[in-house]
Design a binder for these strands. Structure first.
Lengths: 240, 240
DNA sequence: CCCCTAAAGGTCATATTGACTTAAACAAGG
DNA sequence: CCTTGTTTAAGTCAATATGACCTTTAGGGG
């Protein structure tokens, strides 16, 4: 640690945290997990779940642990990817805190339970975020906004939409993911055609599922491909 | 800082650094800026430029400052975007150091000059990186690999290729960027057609440039669009 | 058996792509 | 001042993909 000395005036120790923007679909709405902060600063304010990275812990492991501690969610089944680092000097009143934001997606997840630092945890509809009175703690509004944009873009050129579905799913369910996340209607027929001919996106399980009414739907599971080529572009309001 | 106390056993102070993967094109080769480390650890080994973030400094400002200090490059004209955070517990032998990696792109840049912590700085051809004997310090090989993949993907759906060109450029120059970065030949005619009809990608300046021989080429500048729709996909080896 | 519903599959005009050809604009050389 | 070489620019065309529809199929319930 010798060569740190000459920086003693300019370099400072930092604390590193992880924050999670975790999304799921509940009754055809895109929901994000928020907590009500149980400690200062921003006590009582809504925030993304997160907390300090611990000794010897990878960033990813820290994200998984915080999700479990603050909301009782086992993220091992989730899609989890890093979003980026947020390190504005004054983003945390307690000192220099750099946070690594993670993006998580999962199928219809259980109601979360509050944890140690979180008074309570709950699913909140993304569509209601703009409502005044909903000011998130720290710079979490920025993080959440970036996370949303990332999800919407990733639906286009990766198979990440399947992370919102169960192990097997119908094409209608998959299309609903796109419709809800993009907030636009897609033509069922054209959507089916594109998805099926996109190599490695989905593969039929051979089984079926009965809808409440109507013809049985074939079930699919994720294919091997992660990157979609060609991608499913959301053009300007079209239908597939 | 009160609530940090209860974590005293598990939470540790960290040092935050920035590292830069900066690319440019020099005589039709993709080059990355490397430095030879002038201090321990990894003294004498090649590495990405980078260093500690200072007090009150944003991460981005730290990246710009390090680039100037270690290679004498003024990055204010460059395209600079965050790549992600790398925080494996043992990635730095000196202790817990989390680095925020930045990706920078610029037009044919001047030969860099060595700085304080860098014995020397130099442009290195990306194509030569796999060569054994070229083992970068820390986890910089991972960062560089991620940066390369990011550049290649971003060429597809953003106008970032223009960052490799000067203020005005010919379509042949722009095409060369794609060809060098993707390592694949593109049909000049089809490339022209796509670029021109992609709204907001480029706009003609009205001026021309005389090539060493042949018909004058029209000059273009960047358009207003950042996201390309439709994107320029690199399919499977085709021509536009 | 008939009706309702949702899935699955088909049609068709238009737009886009990839491969290729042709025309245009300069410099140099005889 | 006409020819040649070279590079940019523009055009052709068959194959494919897309967007907007329509039709058929396979259930359940009355």
């Amino acid at each position: 640690m010798d060569d740190w000395l000459k920086y003693s005036e300019e370099v400072e120790a930092s604390w590193v945290t992880v924050d999670l923007a975790i999304f799921t679909l509940r009754d055809d709405q895109l929901m994000v997990l928020l907590i009500e902060r149980g400690v200062e600063p921003f006590l009582g304010r809504p925030a993304l779940p997160g907390g300090y990275v611990q000794k010897g812990e990878t960033l990813r492991a820290g994200a998984l642990r915080e999700l479990w501690e603050e909301a009782g969610i086992d993220a091992s089944r989730l899609h989890l990817e890093q979003l980026g680092a947020y390190g504005e000097p004054r983003r945390d009143p307690r000192g220099r805190v750099v946070t690594i934001a993670y993006l998580a997606l999962g199928p219809d997840l259980p109601a979360p339970v509050g944890g140690t630092d979180a008074e309570r945890a709950y699913w909140f509809p993304v569509s209601q975020l703009h409502k005044q009175s909903y000011e998130l703690a720290f710079d979490h509004a920025d993080i959440l906004s970036d996370a949303l944009e990332e999800v919407r873009r990733k639906l286009e050129y990766t198979a990440v939409a399947t992370a919102f579905c169960g192990k097997s799913f119908t094409l209608t369910e998959l299309r609903t993911v796109y419709e809800v996340v993009w907030g636009q209607h897609l033509d069922p027929s054209n959507f089916r055609r594109k998805v099926i001919k996109t190599a490695g996106f989905v593969q039929p399980t051979g089984e079926q599922r009965l809808p409440p009414t109507g013809r049985p739907a074939a079930l699919y599971r994720r294919g091997e491909a992660w990157l979609l080529s060609p991608p499913l572009l959301r053009g300007g309001g079209q239908s597939a």
